[in-house]
Design a protein around this nucleic acid. Structure first.
Length: 557
RNA sequence: GCACCCGUAGCUCAGCUGGAUAGAGCGUUGGCUUGCGGAGCCAAAGGUCGUAGGUUCGAAUCCUGUCGGGUGUACCA
């Protein structure tokens, strides 16, 4: 593909010397394997009719491509359609599962996503961003990137004050020994309940609000004093650990591992210091007792980085985590994935950092995604406590799967959820339909898992596959062509950081395979060896693609 | 008010660095099964791509206005 494009570029240059971008696209199968509209673009610049330009190009292209193409034709207003020779197509298909484009080779890429807060519960959004972030990481890794998956979370901050306040109420004061009364398997729920109670108190009760603000400050002080001994410290550290245990169990369950956590407590000092230093240089300024960045100069909001208590807000901590990642990895690219409510806020943070670390800001890309909503469900609000938790999504899918298949299958359930989340372009809200997600029919994860298992079972039944594909008949050709597209899909997914292209492709691939399989016999057919090779390539691509989505591809289901 | 995201078939979504009749799945209607896993295949119905302009040989795709939904707008994250 890459080489085909280069040849086209050379021909264009030799013939017209014009600066048109040589591009080959995948047209409808009826038109050929590749197509280009460069003749249409050139026509205007050279002042000749498109078809005339196309004719000149075709003549040269036939020569330049030689054996690799079997046919080049002109269609419509001046499209050039190229049909590969069987041998060229066979070579491309054989290479497809194992030769991903390496556009990130040698680059250090840091991906940050999920970002749950200790002392709070994991909600559906965390599940979503974990799945998306993991897949993007996989895709970049496949493209040669040296990927570091990191996770940023608030172990200090007002929400901690809120939860701690309610915890102290529950314990009847600073009595860490009473934490033993909380059952081990109910810890995260107990803390989630405390957060909701603390939030309510903060909103409804002035005295409680003042206490929470004081507790927040006290938590910061724990770190300043390195206090692990006082009763208050005991409670804090124990509950903090409970949260991290809970996160780790969760990530392990869904299969999205992280290399490193950046707790806010760790990055806050650096953030605070950076903001103070840059305040001296005029980047940030004092306003009503707080330190702010005047985003309005850039058409953005003005936001508080250090509050009037002298504590860093999320903004300063984010400066801290950006600087920490920069210090730790000196990345070529940093990808941050969050919900879209963070969008404008992050623009302010990055704009401020751009003033003193322009390279860091330039190398950082922020992607935002929408909210997860249950089909026909209600909007979630983490403050009020009526929201969709991560486990709710897992439970709903598991229940739907049990209803559909009569058994529990975590691999299928996770495959269903991940695929349902990933098949959609990142950006808009996700309407999650548990029933549809676990469906074995249609565009779903389990469907693709099944498609893979089915192909593998054919391979088990069949004899020895051919080493090479050689010539292809009209049943085999469309499948070989689709398989050969795989590297191009990976390239696009990596370039755009968009895994959904892989989903779309895999589903189309499975459809084309089913069409092939419906009409062509494999085992026992005179063409068995070649067809087995094709089935094997197909299964390899499915397995590889599902792997990039973080979805298991079992041999049997 | 201002800013950001989103408006494509009944529902859920692809397609958006402009290009050939706007594609899938679900749902609806009809057909195929002595099958290598039919969890499939073949076919039909269903769309003024929110809307009005503009740029272009060509616009779902780019620009502007407008309508609708969501989010954000200083000491939460």
């Amino acid at each position: 593909m890459q080489e085909m494009t280069t040849v086209l570029a050379t021909v264009i240059h030799d013939l017209f010397g014009a600066d048109v971008k040589a591009e080959l696209t995948r047209p409808e199968p009826q038109f050929g394997d590749y197509a280009t509209n460069v003749a249409l673009q050139l026509a205007g610049r050279v002042g000749k009719p498109p078809r005339g330009v196309a004719e000149q190009l075709v003549e040269k292209l036939r020569e330049a491509y030689g054996e690799r193409v079997s046919d080049i034709t002109i269609a419509g207003p001046g499209f050039i359609n190229i049909r590969l020779s069987d041998s060229a197509l066979a070579t491309a298909a054989e290479a497809a599962p194992t030769t991903p484009p390496q556009q990130f080779k040698g680059q250090v890429i840091v991906t940050e996503y999920s970002d749950p807060n200790p002392f709070k519960v994991l909600h559906a959004g965390h599940l979503y961003t974990s799945v998306v972030g993991d897949s993007i990481s996989n895709v970049v890794e496949k493209a040669g990137g040296n990927v570091h998956r990191v996770n940023f979370g608030g172990d200090v901050g007002l929400h901690v004050g809120k939860t701690m306040w309610a915890i102290l109420q529950e314990l009847g004061g600073e009595h860490p020994e009473k934490l033993q009364d909380v059952p081990e398997n109910g810890r995260s729920e107990w803390m989630a309940k405390c957060y909701v109670a603390g939030t309510k108190a903060y909103e409804d009760d002035e005295t409680a609000k003042a206490e929470i603000i004081a507790l927040n400050k006290r938590v910061y002080q724990l770190f300043a004093d390195n206090d692990h001994e006082s009763p208050f410290a005991h409670i804090y550290w124990t509950c903090r650990q409970w949260s991290y245990d809970y996160f780790n169990v969760f990530y392990k369950r869904i299969g999205t591992p992280f290399e490193k956590y950046y707790p806010e407590s760790e990055v806050a000092p650096l953030g605070l210091q950076t903001v103070r230093d840059q305040q001296a240089k005029g980047v940030y300024e004092e306003s009503n007792g707080a330190v702010v960045f005047d985003g309005e100069k850039y058409g953005l909001h003005t936001r508080v980085f250090i509050n009037s208590q002298g504590l860093p807000t999320y903004e300063a901590k984010d400066v801290g985590v950006l600087m920490s990642k920069w210090r730790d990895y000196h990345f070529d690219r940093s990808i941050v994935i969050t919900g879209n409510d963070i969008d404008e806020y992050m623009k302010v943070v990055l704009k401020s950092v751009e003033q003193y670390e322009p390279e860091l800001a330039r190398r950082t890309t922020h992607f935002t995604h929408g909210n997860v909503k249950l089909q026909g469900g209600v909007k979630m609000s983490s403050r009020k406590g009526n929201f969709l938790r991560a486990v709710d999504v897992l439970d709903a899918a598991n229940e739907a799967n049990r209803a559909a298949t009569g058994r529990d299958d975590e691999r299928a359930v996770l495959g269903a959820i991940k695929y349902a989340f990933l098949k959609q372009r990142i950006g808009a809200d996700i309407i999650f339909d548990p029933k549809e997600s676990v469906s074995l029919e249609g565009n779903s994860g389990p469907y693709l898992q099944y498609a893979h298992a089915r192909a593998r079972s054919v391979l088990v039944k069949g004899g020895t596959a051919a080493e090479h594909l050689a010539e292809l008949d009209e049943l085999e050709r469309p499948l070989a062509r689709k398989i050969s597209e795989y590297p191009e899909v990976l390239e696009k997914s990596a370039r755009e950081f968009m895994p959904h292209h892989i989903c779309t492709y895999l589903y189309e691939l499975a459809q084309i395979f089913n069409r092939f399989y419906e009409h062509a016999h494999v085992v026992g057919d005179p063409r068995e060896a070649v067809r087995l090779k094709l089935v094997s390539l197909y299964a390899d691509v499915l397995q590889d693609g599902l792997g990039l989505l973080g979805i298991a591809a079992p041999e049997r289901m």
